[in-house]
Amino acid sequence: MSIPTAVWGTGNVGRAAIRAVAANPQLRLAAVIVNDADKAGRDAGELAALDRDLGVAATTDVDAALAEVAGGALAYAAAGELRPDDAVADIRRALASGAVVVTPSVYALYDHRGAPAELREPIEAACRAGGSALFVSGIDPGWGNDLLPVLVSGLASEVEQIRCQEIFDYSTYDAEDSVRYIVGMGQPMDYDPPMVAPGVPSMVWGGQVRLIARALGVELDELRETSSRQPLEATVTTALGEFAAGTQGALRFEVQGIVDGVPRIVVEHVTRITLAAAPDWPQPPDGGDGAHRVIVEGRPRIEINVEATDEGDNRSAGGNATAANRLVNAIPWLRSAPPGLYDGLDVPLAPSAYLRTPDPAMRS
């Protein structure tokens, strides 16, 4: 019997989650929750950029939607970074109702073992109350900063450093406010982007560094952060509008896991608003607009580049889709797992259930 599944949110990750649920034969899309009243009543297929209706109308009625998936699952894709307390409350509510939950929205739970007790314990109580499980993963895009680097490290005889990179041109990223005001693109060079405010990178990505360290059996001395910015040499116009010469055109930062005084595990972002910005920084392997890269420095040196496209060959959308698919495809495993919290190393990577003649509508 298929697992009734709701998707909460229809943004970049939510659209991909709807498509993933609709495609998975082990799941049944039972509800789509939206916060925007203008989206209520619209078919999930339309909201997910499919060429067909799915027969599920979006709703703002959270109680009714969760009642549809009691004993099932919820893919929570609301913007947790903008409303973290609300996101935690939403997730606890769903867990206590009996739905397993998968989400990228609560960064502190990427490494739930290291999360503060005041955050972790009420969620564990909700899992016990509902007999449910929670899996938090997905940022950049989850598997690229936990499972993949750990697997690749097993192909080396000696490992000196593991580096996980996200290298992206954000000119096609469908979130203009985040690009301009959180990342800082197009802002004066004396603007302080919230994304790299002291402590923020470690709060968001530090859990993934700790996961890799745990898998490799090493103790971290500390986490360190580095960041740098470069201005645009010329004004550029993108799908997001104009970005003036002299304003920020590129941002690069690292979260470093220090072992014996040396950065051994590194999560690095290289972000541009145009490929012409910061030409001396790491580039995608084929001159494209984005890639996720894992580098194992050691013997042998190993480099793996992953490039995914979706929604009209958009690589930002492709990255979001892989993050959503990793989460959604974990639902059957979680539904049979004991109640509790799980991370990217706990949950096995599920083989695809989709190997069949593709539905052209799913490629929209």
Rank of each mutant, 00 (worst) to 15 (best):
A317G: 07
E225C: 11
E311P: 00
R363Q: 13
E225D: 14
S153E: 13
R264F: 01
A23S: 14
A361S: 15
A87M: 05
T309Y: 12
E166T: 07
S97Q: 13
H292M: 11
E176L: 06
E176G: 07
S157G: 14
A350K: 09
D169G: 02
V183A: 12
V183I: 15
D53A: 14
I304T: 13
K39W: 02
N325E: 03
P25A: 10
T103G: 06
V267F: 13
D140Y: 09
G114S: 15
G41Q: 08
V13I: 15
P351T: 08
A337P: 11
R180T: 01
R301I: 00
Y181I: 00
R120M: 01
D169Q: 04
P332I: 11
E311D: 12
A197H: 12
V196E: 04
R93L: 13
H269S: 12
P194Q: 10
A156E: 07
C164I: 00
I18Y: 07
V255D: 03
P263T: 10
G246S: 11
S105C: 07
P263K: 10
V204I: 15
G249C: 06
G98T: 05
P141Q: 04
T237S: 13
A67V: 03
E68M: 12
N329V: 01
D90K: 02
Y191T: 06
G80D: 08
A156R: 06
A79V: 13
G9T: 05
A197M: 11
L223K: 00
H292P: 01
A156Y: 06
W8H: 06
E160Y: 01
L251N: 04
G130N: 01
G344F: 01
V32F: 04
P348F: 09
G206V: 10
A6E: 03
D174P: 00
D86T: 14
Q256M: 15
H269C: 05
R163N: 03
L341Y: 07
M362T: 06
V106H: 04
W333R: 11
S178Y: 13
D53P: 03
V102N: 11
V218H: 08
E160S: 10
D192N: 10
Q165M: 11
N325T: 12
P284S: 14
R83M: 12
A6F: 02
V200Q: 13
I265L: 15
M189I: 12
V7G: 05
A37F: 05
L134K: 02
L147K: 11
A276Y: 00
I3P: 03
P25T: 10
G261I: 10
A278F: 09
D111H: 09
L251T: 08
L29E: 05
S364G: 05
V88R: 14
G184T: 03
V270N: 13
G241N: 10
S105L: 06
N24W: 00
G131T: 11
G290Y: 09
